[in-house]
């Protein structure tokens, strides 16, 4: 039998990245401040995790102007969704094995 742990995604080992991705799975797009509020993080901490997810093309970033302020919003990519689904399935298998 294939070891389910091989499907666990290293990128989602961090609870924060797992949280970001969970929120983006059920929302089309979310802006920075909304994510920050949900996860209770500081700007810098959230930004570094978002950057990591962006670099691996798990999330896509878009910036737009609302009046004078820029607003950055985030969206899960198809690739990201697939990785997240695999990660979830692996977690479930781990639980069922016990």
């Amino acid at each position: 039998m294939k070891n389910p742990i091989s499907n666990l995604q290293k990128v989602f080992e961090s609870r924060i990245r797992l949280g970001i991705m969970s929120a983006l799975m059920v929302n089309d797009t979310l802006d920075f401040n909304t994510l920050k509020g949900y996860l209770g993080l500081t700007d810098g901490n959230l930004a570094s995790h978002l950057k990591a997810l962006e670099q691996q093309e798990i999330i896509a970033v878009s910036k737009q102007f609302i009046g004078r302020k820029t607003s950055t919003s985030y969206k899960a990519t198809g690739h990201g969704r697939e990785l997240f689904r695999r990660h979830l399935a692996a977690l479930e298998k781990l639980i069922n094995q016990k």
């Binding site: 609870r15 797992l18 949280g19 969970s22 929120a23 799975m25 059920v26 949900y38 996860l39 979830l88 977690l91 479930e92 639980i95």
Partner: peptide, 8 residues
């Protein structure tokens, strides 16, 4: 899984 469900 609990954390995922909670944040979703």
């Amino acid at each position: 899984l609990r954390a995922i469900r909670d944040i979703m």
